[in-house]
């Protein structure tokens, strides 16, 4: 459903993303991994429209997103979270979700109906999202005054509020404990079960290997492998990328 075709982004002489081709299928949890600086976040920024690609295209359900502005991609069903949490700190928890939904162009017809459900009586879908992310009791608190874990949950809820077809999670486990990681895995599965396709960018291997259906590996901006978690774990190129090439030879020399 989400297809990247020969996607590249060059910053001067640096090829941050270099000819990546990927197809993510509807309803799967797809992992995108790679060492630091391999182009994962740049890829996300190309999909969401924060960057314009040097070459290549991004299509979702056959719609060419490549030249679309960000707000138009959102209404086509692309949503994301950020590696460093981004929320509207001076808006309440409910407003972070509620506004996000109504800022959505397809829902403009509801504009005047908001008069009848102001403040506390948010739409049913917002209430549901607040329950889903266990933030209902905090709905009138300013987002900037939440705890770190609550902010993470709110960020995912905020992304879901725009009713996406595909959700891009950029290192959602960053700063989370092992225990939080378990809860996060459940949460990501729950998102998938809502019918949202998930693209997961993550460093925590345990999480990625545990919940993804398929994985692609980037190194120096190029895709070096794609397959099931098992296939990826056994791939020699992936091992080389993570452990450093020449690893085996050095080991052999050392033991000789």
């Amino acid at each position: 459903m989400l297809t990247l075709e020969n996607l590249s982004k060059h910053f001067g002489g640096v090829r941050a993303v270099d000819g990546v081709t990927l197809t993510i299928r509807e309803g799967e949890i797809f992992g995108l991994i790679g060492p630091n600086g391999s182009g994962k976040s740049t890829t996300v920024n190309l999909i969401t429209g924060l960057y314009t690609p040097t070459t290549g295209t991004v299509t979702l359900d056959g719609w060419d997103l490549t030249a679309m502005p960000q707000h138009a991609r959102t209404s086509r069903g692309v949503a994301r979270t950020f590696q460093n949490i981004r929320l509207f700190g001076n808006l309440t928890v409910a407003q972070n979700l509620w506004v996000a939904q109504n800022g959505h162009e397809q829902r403009r017809e509801h504009f005047l109906s908001r008069w009848f459900k102001p403040g506390g009586e948010h739409g049913a879908s917002v209430d549901e999202l607040l329950q889903f992310s266990r933030l209902y009791s905090k709905r009138d608190v300013l987002a900037g005054n939440l705890s770190f874990g609550e902010m993470r949950r709110l960020e995912m809820a905020r992304a879901l509020a725009s009713n996406p077809r595909v959700l891009l999670l950029d290192e959602p486990a960053a700063g989370a404990s092992q225990e939080d990681g378990q809860l996060l895995a459940e949460r990501i599965r729950a998102v998938r079960d809502r019918g949202v396709t998930v693209l997961l960018i993550e460093h925590m291997m345990e999480l990625v290997m545990g919940i993804t259906d398929r994985i692609a590996v980037l190194n120096f901006g190029q895709k070096i492998a794609e397959g099931t978690p098992r296939e990826i774990q056994d791939d020699p190129q992936v091992r080389a990328a993570y452990l450093g090439s020449g690893h085996d030879e050095k080991m052999e020399r050392a033991s000789a």
């Binding site: 800022g103 509020a161 725009s162």
Partner: peptide, 20 residues
């Protein structure tokens, strides 16, 4: 909700654009 949307734009225009 007009003011809240304006505040979104003011606080983080990139995120606001992401939210449509």
């Amino acid at each position: 909700d007009v003011m809240a949307q304006l505040r979104m734009v003011g606080e983080d225009p990139i995120l606001a654009a992401m939210q449509g």
